[in-house]
Design a binder for these strands. Structure first.
Lengths: 345, 345
DNA sequence: CACCCACATGCACACGTGTGCATTGGTCGG
DNA sequence: CCGACCAATGCACACGTGTGCATGTGGGTG
C-alpha cells in the first residue's frame, strides 16, 4: 500500500485554487500570474510533489518510453547496444523498457504484445529473428539494428553495419598475408547477418580465384548465447585445421575465442600456425592472448544512432537508414602464412 | 500520429453494449452471461484490441513495472544481473525499466526521479553509490544487490554475495599453495564491496600471521567501467611484483585481466611466476589464458532472486535478506609458490 | 397476483493530468 | 459613464479502464 502520493488536487487545495491553475503553473503557462505561479511551485516542492507520468501518458497519448527488444543481454555486443540506447534516451526524457527474447518466437511475440499494451512511443529491435508480420501500430517508429531485411515496408528503418564489407575486408587481410586456404566459421542462430558475412568472405575468395565452398562451416545450434558461439568455434575448427587451413574468418569474436580454445587443445599456435580474424571488437577481444585481429562494430554507437533516429521519427523528421562502415583492427592473431614447413599432419 | 488504437468503447459500440460490460467480459467476470462474454471476446480479437496498460495503471494504482538501476550495462556482471531480473519479471507480468547511472550522483537522482514519476511498483538497485536518503515512497519495495549497507531501514532489503567470505577463501587458497607475500588490488569506484573484499583478504593474512598493509593497492579512479578496472590491475601490479609478491587477490575478474596484461609486459608467467585469483566468474574468465581461478558470483541468479524478492514484497509476504555463499573455482591461474629460485630482481 | 430473488447489464464515478471555453474582475478608451 | 478588451482563473471534459451501486427483467413461490 503505497499510500497514494500527492496530486495536483492536493496542491490546489493547499493553495486555494483549482487544479487547472496548478497544472498550468507547473507547466509555466503565461496564463497564470507570476506570483501565483511562484507560490504554487513553492507549495509543490514543499509537499514533495512528483508528477504522475502515467496520467500524463494517458491524457496526451504518448508515454515517452521506447521498447528495446534484444536477443540476449549477456552478449557483450548487445550490452553495448543497450548502453548506447539508454545513454541517448535519458537526455531526451525517454525511458527504455527492456526485454529479451532468447531467439524464441513465442517469447518475442509476448514481448511485443507487452510493449504494445504499454503504448511505447517507439521500438528498437536488435533481434535476428524474422520481423513479425503484424508489426506494432502502423506509424509507430520502428528501428532495426543489424537486421536490414530488404526494406519491405516504408515504415521500418534500420541501423546496421556493412557485414559483407567487413567480412570482405577481413578475408582480404588474410589473403594479403599470403594465406590461400582460408576457412569461415559461422553460426545459424543469426541467419541474416551470418549469411552476409559469409557472402563477403566468399566474394573475396572468389575474387582471388580461390575455392571456398569446402571451407565453410556453420554451427546448426539455434541458441543465441555467447557460450553457444564459443562452443561453435571450438567444435568446428578441427575439421578446417585438418583440411590444411592456415587462416580463419570467424562470424564474431566469441567464435574466435572458441577457435583459440580449440587451437590450444590441438597445440596449434596463434598466429604462427593459424591466423584468426574475429568480428565485433567486443572488449574481450583485447583481453585474450594473443590480442584478436577483428572487424570493429561500434555497438554503443549503433545504439545511440538508433535512438536518435527514433527521436527524429517521433518528430516526423525524415530519416535515412544508416549503414556503418566496418573497420579492420589488425592486432596479434594474424601473421604471414608459414613457409613450407608443412610438418603438420 | 499513431491513429489512436481501439478501446473498449469501440468494442462496446460494435457489440451494442456498454463499456462496463466489455470490461467485465474481457476480465472473464461471472457477472456477464456466457454467450455475451464469448461474443465480446470474439469481437475484441477480430478488431485487434490490445488493452491499454497505462489506463489500467492509472485506475488501479500499480503499473506492473519495476525500475532497475545499475552502474553500467557494459560490465558483464551487471549484464548478467539484468538478464536474471528480466527473466524473472516477464513470467510474472512485470516489465523492467532500465537506467544506468555511471557512478554519477546527479544522474542517479534523475533516474530515480524518472522512476518515481513513472510510478514503478518496485525498485532494484545494483549501484554502488550511497543509497539516496530520500528513497522512493516509503512502502515501495526496494531491493539492493550487493549493497547491504548495515540495514539502516526496515524497508530496504538486499541480495548480495558474501564478499568477505569470498576474498577470505581466495586468500586461503593462495596460502594453502604456500604463498606468503600476497597482494590485493582493488578499485575505489565500488567502495563498499571493495572494502569488504579487502577485509576478507586482510583477515586471512592476519590469521596466518602475515603482514598485509604493505601489499594493498586500490585504484583511485571513480569511473565504474570494465575498462577502468582493467587499467587498474595493469597499472597497480608492477609495484606489488617489485615487492616480491607471488600471489595476487583481485577485486574482480576485470582487474585480473589487467594483471594478466601487466604480467605479459613484465614477462612474468602466470601461474609459474605469479598466481592470480579473480572475483565474479564472469564469462571472460574462462576464455583468457590461463583460465582464471576465481570466486564465483552468480550474477543471473542474484538478479532472479532480487526480482522474486520484489514480487514477494509486492504481495506483502515477509522476506529475509539473501546472502549468497561464494564458491572458489580453481582453474589454471594459481599454482604452488615457486621454490627458492629467486632469480627475479 | 404480488413479492422476492437471482441474474444480467448500465450509470456514474474514480484514477491524475491537460486544455478549450466560459467567467470574472479590472482597466482603459471613447 | 459605459462598453470593450485583457488578464487571470475556474468549469468541464477528455484520455481508457475498473467497479460499486442502481436498474431492469424474468421466473419462481406463497
Amino acid at each position: 500500500m503505497p499510500g497514494r502520493s500527492i496530486s495536483i488536487h492536493d496542491i490546489a487545495e493547499a493553495a486555494g485554487v483549482s487544479h487547472s491553475t496548478v497544472s498550468r503553473a507547473l507547466r509555466n503557462s503565461p496564463l497564470i500570474s507570476q506570483d501565483v505561479r511562484d507560490n504554487i511551485r513553492a507549495i509543490a516542492t514543499r509537499m514533495g510533489y512528483v508528477p504522475n507520468l502515467v496520467a500524463q501518458s494517458l491524457q496526451g497519448s504518448r508515454t515517452r518510453s521506447i521498447g528495446v527488444l534484444v536477443t540476449t543481454i549477456s552478449d557483450p555486443f548487445f550490452a553495448d547496444v543497450i548502453g548506447g540506447i539508454e545513454q541517448a534516451a535519458r537526455p531526451a526524457g525517454y525511458s527504455v523498457l527492456l526485454a529479451a527474447t532468447h531467439n524464441d518466437q513465442e517469447e518475442e511475440a509476448r514481448c511485443l504484445d507487452s510493449f504494445r499494451a504499454r503504448r511505447v512511443d517507439g521500438l528498437i529491435i536488435s533481434s535476428s529473428s524474422s520481423i513479425p508480420a503484424p508489426l506494432a501500430a502502423p506509424g509507430m517508429p520502428l528501428v532495426l539494428i543489424n537486421n536490414h531485411s530488404e526494406r519491405r515496408s516504408d515504415a521500418l528503418h534500420s541501423v546496421s553495419i556493412d557485414d559483407r564489407a567487413g567480412a570482405l575486408q577481413a578475408t582480404q587481410h588474410l589473403l594479403a598475408l599470403g594465406h590461400r586456404k582460408i576457412g569461415y566459421i559461422g553460426v545459424a542462430s543469426r541467419v541474416a547477418s551470418n549469411d552476409r558475412r559469409r557472402r563477403g568472405y566468399e566474394e573475396a575468395m572468389a575474387a582471388a580465384g580461390l575455392d571456398s565452398a569446402a571451407h565453410v562451416r556453420v554451427s546448426a545450434s539455434m541458441t543465441a548465447d555467447p557460450e553457444a558461439d564459443v562452443i561453435a568455434g571450438r567444435r568446428l575448427l578441427p575439421e578446417l585445421a585438418a583440411r590444411g587451413c592456415t587462416g580463419i574468418v570467424c562470424y564474431n569474436d566469441m567464435v574466435a575465442v572458441g577457435v583459440f580454445m580449440a587451437c590450444r587443445e590441438l597445440e596449434l599456435r596463434v598466429p604462427e600456425d593459424l591466423s584468426v580474424v574475429g568480428f565485433d571488437d567486443v572488449a574481450i577481444s583485447r583481453y585474450i592472448t594473443p590480442q584478436l585481429t577483428t572487424v570493429r562494430q561500434p555497438g554503443a554507437e549503433l545504439g545511440r544512432i538508433a535512438m536518435q533516429m527514433t527521436l527524429a521519427l517521433l518528430d516526423n523528421k525524415p530519416v535515412s537508414d544508416f549503414l556503418a562502415q566496418p573497420l579492420l583492427l589488425v592486432r596479434d592473431s594474424t601473421s604471414p602464412v608459414p613457409s613450407p614447413n608443412r610438418d603438420k599432419r
